[in-house]
Write a protein that binds this DNA or RNA. Structure first.
Lengths: 329, 329
DNA sequence: ATGAAAGCGCTAACAT
DNA sequence: ATGTTAGCGCTTTCAT
């Protein structure tokens, strides 16, 4: 069996308390004693039992990260940012993929409770966000990408209104007249981007055929295919997608049907995923500060833990319009 | 405070033992009693304390997953596969990014020991793999992508020799005469692919200028830039990259220098990452069964836990050559 | 089928 | 500066 703290104490000729003190660097220990203990630890290859530490101290030093799917580049990057920040503070991360499935969300939230996590960073579906009641939980929650009910938890989001407006205005400037948009139906984010997009276009007298779809490439693909089949005076001359997954599906559909960008139809969207820069022409996007979003979420969480009663804060980060060939010369 | 098992027991008028029995579905409990206990659990919103369960039972139900960087699409997919399989078995996973840094690898391995993990799935650097001594660890390890010392642990890898040979022969068939290759210097995988690639080319009398580089896009970018600057009779007419990251760097360099594929220079590599299919021309790749690799790693681990003394196994999965425009019409 | 009691390995009062 | 002691919340013998 692995050595226990008691074995270390005996071998070093001190009490377990003293060993505990040198482990946590907390409490007074004579330097010569500390060295001796450290030596024994090294020699026995002692590793404190994390489960015992957590049980006894009541501090699990664990962050729960609940996202729809790490394979979405947005969440891949967020997860890396959260993990970097967490490990740097001696905390661990439990990553959960919900696949936008409310049952999985509920299940993982239960898991977080069993784990007695220190805090949770959470990207809820629209439905789950609506129902979410922070008072139910013993740990603080920071929402990312999608905000929950206003003021109920801390949150880090993109400035969706601004970004969607900039995208719309860019299309107007470039002279597009029949703009169509695909928006994720599972998130507040999709709704916010939708509202701002439609509003901005209407202000400029440009028609906006915006639709909500399941947040998967396939859904976007199907919708774009249908649009391309329309009579030419009904067919959109510009298409926007509200996240990287939908943008990918839209792009694939355009390619497959031989639609040339931007001549036959322009394309733009959210998320500066790697491929958007690599294809020809490049795809105009709103770049989100992805790593920053994750990093800031951890910061909000840390501050909340330090000061639980502080009033809730929503951090709104700016997106950056990256213009590429898909929306004009 | 959150209710404890004792609270549930008292409210249900039974002993904690009985509650424990219904929680674990293990041991005899009268049906009427079970229902009553379940009711109380629901009513009190009781969640068993995972740390206490782990400490007492000695079973952490935790898998460690150590990779270089989840942002590498290969590992993104592997991590999703491992998480799916783990959660399906009621296990949790701790994900660690080493950035190919031996110090981080050592640190995370220590963390795994503290966590008393049930098992580890590990993609070591070349150096760490060489030094790795399975006997040091109380938990079984399954290596992925890169194998450790032969027969020391279970492992899941690609058939690197076969894949690299197929890639080389494809280039020969297409008539390329001066093939250059970029191989990751931090993994056994890079070495295996290198050896097979060079060997296959030489058998066909084709020159092979193969080099080892740091496994980052930037390193590949720099090397390819240098190759392009060479005298035209020295310049390679085909370039191969031994993983998705290097392939991306190589592709970027070719684009930036206006090299047309495949006319000026052909390009091929490993990993069927999303962008390789989206760019024009598409990039010829060896597609790895990525999700399968993760899934199989969990299976080997599960079997090893069931039968610790079984002799070690290496699962070798075939790659698939996906021919696209970057290596010819 | 159920319960009493011991104890997993550690930390945190509280002595001294 | 160091040690003694009492649990943290659970599972697991061992009785009954």
């Amino acid at each position: 069996m692995a050595p226990r703290i008691k074995d270390v104490a005996e071998a070093a000729g001190v009490s377990v308390t003293t060993v505990s003190r040198v482990l946590s660097n907390n409490g007074p220990v004579r330097d010569s004693v500390r060295r001796r203990v450290l030596e024994v630890i090294e020699q026995l290859d002692y590793r404190p039992n994390a489960a015992a530490q957590r049980l006894r101290s009541g501090d699990t030093a664990t962050i729960g990260l609940i996202v729809s799917d790490v394979r979405n580049p947005f969440f891949t990057e967020v997860s890396r940012a959260v993990e970097d920040a967490a490990y740097a503070q001696g905390m661990r991360v439990i990553l959960c993929n919900t696949d936008e499935n409310p049952e999985k969300e509920a299940m993982y939230l239960r898991l977080m409770e069993s784990e007695r996590v220190t805090g949770v960073i959470y990207s809820p579906t629209y439905e789950a966000a609506r129902r979410f009641d922070a008072r139910t939980y013993a740990f603080p929650v920071v929402m990312i990408d999608r905000a929950g009910p206003a003021g109920v938890t801390d949150a880090v989001t993109l400035d969706n209104r601004d970004a969607a407006t900039r995208l719309a205005e860019h299309l107007v400037e470039r002279g597009y007249k029949r703009c169509a948009g695909l928006f994720g139906n599972a998130s507040t984010t999709g709704r916010e981007r939708h509202a701002a997009f439609v509003e901005a276009l209407q202000q400029h007298g440009v028609s906006a055929a915006a639709e909500f779809v399941d947040p998967h490439p396939e859904a976007a693909h199907a919708r774009v295919t249908a649009w391309l089949a329309a009579e030419s005076d009904e067919r959109p001359d510009a298409i926007v997608a509200s996240n990287g997954l939908l943008l990918l599906g839209a792009y694939r559909a355009l390619r497959e049907h031989g639609a040339r960008m931007p001549d036959d139809v322009a394309l733009a969207g959210f998320d500066n995923d790697a491929w958007t820069d690599l294809v020809t022409p490049g795809v105009t996007v709103i770049a989100q500060p992805v790593y920053e979003i994750g990093k800031n979420a951890m910061q909000l969480l840390t501050q909340r833990l330090a000061e639980p009663e502080m009033s809730t804060r929503t951090l709104v980060l700016p997106g950056e319009l990256v213009v590429r060939g898909s929306t004009g010369a």
